[in-house]
């Protein structure tokens, strides 16, 4: 009987761990989609000279970075790229830094700087994707 109870407990523990990992991954995937939408929104609002829109999209981008910034990158990186965790984390931090500066630039009506920040954000995104998803490009 003891063995049966122990086996059931182990099974429950393992499944809850698996479920938690799956939940974390789906949250990250959802946040990645939000990041993509936010970046697109910054561009759209920028093209239409919509300062409020740019600011809102940058704020959305910063919020969507939260789960990435607080998650260990090795949990979502492909196995063969697990070593690039700190690199990925640095890119996330830089995106946040540029997005925050983008808001400051918009508030001070320095549009040129704001758009420069936007291009730096894109550069950080592609920098990471080109390293992490090398095979996907081929």
């Amino acid at each position: 009987m003891k063995k049966v109870i122990l086996s059931i407990l182990c099974l429950v523990f393992a499944s809850s761990l698996y479920a938690q990992t799956k939940t974390e991954q789906s949250k990250l995937a959802s946040d990645m989609r939000t990041m993509l939408a936010a970046v697109t929104d910054i561009q759209r609002a920028g093209f239409y000279n919509n300062k409020i829109g740019v600011k809102e999209a940058a704020t959305k981008l910063i919020k969507s970075l939260d789960s990435l910034l607080t998650t260990d990158p090795t949990s979502y990186l492909p196995n063969d790229k697990a070593d690039a965790g700190k690199f990925a984390k640095k890119r996330e931090q830089m995106i946040k830094l540029y997005a925050e500066d983008l808001i400051v630039s918009i508030e001070s009506e320095n549009i040129e700087d704001a758009m420069d920040n936007y291009s730096r954000i894109l550069n950080e995104c592609t920098s990471c994707h080109s390293r992490i998803r090398t095979k996907a490009w081929k």
Binding site: L97, Y98, E100, D101, D113, D116, N117, R120
Partner: peptide
């Protein structure tokens, strides 16, 4: 100098 303006502030 073009790329790291926010970092220079920090």
């Amino acid at each position: 100098f073009q790329a790291f303006k926010p970092e220079f502030k920090k």
